[in-house]
Amino acid sequence: MLTPTFSGTEGPRSERVLIVDDVPDNLALLHDALDESGYTVFVATSGEAALARARQAQPDIVLLDAVMPGMDGFELARRLKATPATAGIPLIFMTGLTETEHLVAALEAGGADYVTKPIKPKEVLARMQVHLRAAAQAQGAVQTRRALDAFGYASVTVRLSDGRLMWQTPLARELLQRHFPAEPGGLLPAPVRAWLAQQPLRAQEHLREPPRFQHEQGARRLSFALHPSGLENLDEGDECLLVMREQSDAALIEAMGLNFRLTAREAEVLYWVVKGKINRDIGDILGASPATVKKHLERVFAKLGVETRTSAAAMALNRLRQLHPQWEL
């Protein structure tokens, strides 16, 4: 059996190709052509061996024969696509079966493309380049979104025609569930859909300053911003990228309580007074009656040495800006 070959022309990032075929002549032809082109080549002569080699080598692309004894190429493709570690690898079928039903079966099994036998190495190389580029771009997008998550941002891809979430990072899913627990999981929340529907997506100024939407939930704020890339060319049926970020004033409330020697609940009441909320609204937010809020506020007035809401708010706002100069109402 042929073994992996490392050509002297390949660099440290040489792309890895797994060839799966039970005919030695086919393996040798492709192995030599790919090796000369600088690829790292792995081979397998059966579906079972290919599964093990794919898990071990993590190839960037797989060329697989459709007809093999035992596990054929169709079943191999289905198993590769069903395994998370190999599901994203592009698969190109090599087949002598030219009936439409067989070609459709190859694509339905997870194949990205197919070439017909007898194999023409130049054609295979050209097809590979197309799918390797597409896979690299997709992987780059995933890595970018994961990086956004790592820095406290989250992103979702939304279909403009109906607001359906086509893709979302784990952090985005968590934030949407936290802020919109009653909304259907597969759709962008209704308030955000309504905001998105009002945006003139083709406007050039959006490339300089993306439109934003903000949803408040207690001391937490979840903002949505349209990613500027490609907005000028969007149509109703297209998809767009929304970048989300959650901000919380919980630390500020705690610091305000410590500075003014307030209890946790008194600090919360004062925070919402600064935000311009009346007692009834504060009660709704904190799950308390307006009368209870009034009692907390009276104790706040006494501790701050003031007599009115306006004075308490002004003193607290001044202290908040000292603690956090960037803080805004």
Rank of each mutant, 00 (worst) to 15 (best):
Q137F: 11
F151C: 13
D149A: 01
V130R: 04
G140I: 07
M128S: 02
G152K: 03
Q139M: 07
E123H: 08
A141W: 07
G111M: 06
L125E: 05
A134G: 05
A135R: 08
K122M: 10
K117H: 08
V130G: 07
Y153Q: 09
M128G: 00
V142G: 12
A147S: 15
T100G: 13
P121K: 00
G152W: 09
K122C: 08
V124P: 03
L125A: 10
V124S: 01
L132M: 05
K117Q: 04
A138F: 10
Y114D: 02
V115A: 03
A109N: 06
V115H: 02
E108H: 10
V115P: 00
K117S: 04
Y153F: 09
Q137L: 09
L97W: 02
A105W: 03
H102M: 14
Q129W: 06
A106Y: 01
L148S: 08
D149L: 00
K117G: 00
A109K: 08
L132H: 01
A106C: 14
I119N: 06
V124T: 01
V130N: 01
E101C: 09
Y153L: 09
V130K: 04
V124R: 01
G111E: 02
M128K: 00
E101I: 13
V124W: 01
E108Y: 12
Y114H: 05
I119F: 03
L148C: 06
T98P: 12
E123P: 04
A109Q: 05
K120F: 09
L148D: 06
E108L: 08
H102W: 13
E101H: 15
Q143M: 14
V142A: 11
L97V: 07
T98H: 14
T100K: 15
Q143K: 14
E108Q: 13
L132G: 02
G110W: 07
R133W: 08
V115W: 00
A136R: 04
L132D: 02
G140F: 12
R133F: 05
P121L: 01
L125K: 03
Q139I: 07
D149T: 00
H131Q: 04
Q129K: 08
A150K: 10
E108M: 13
Q137H: 10
Q143L: 14
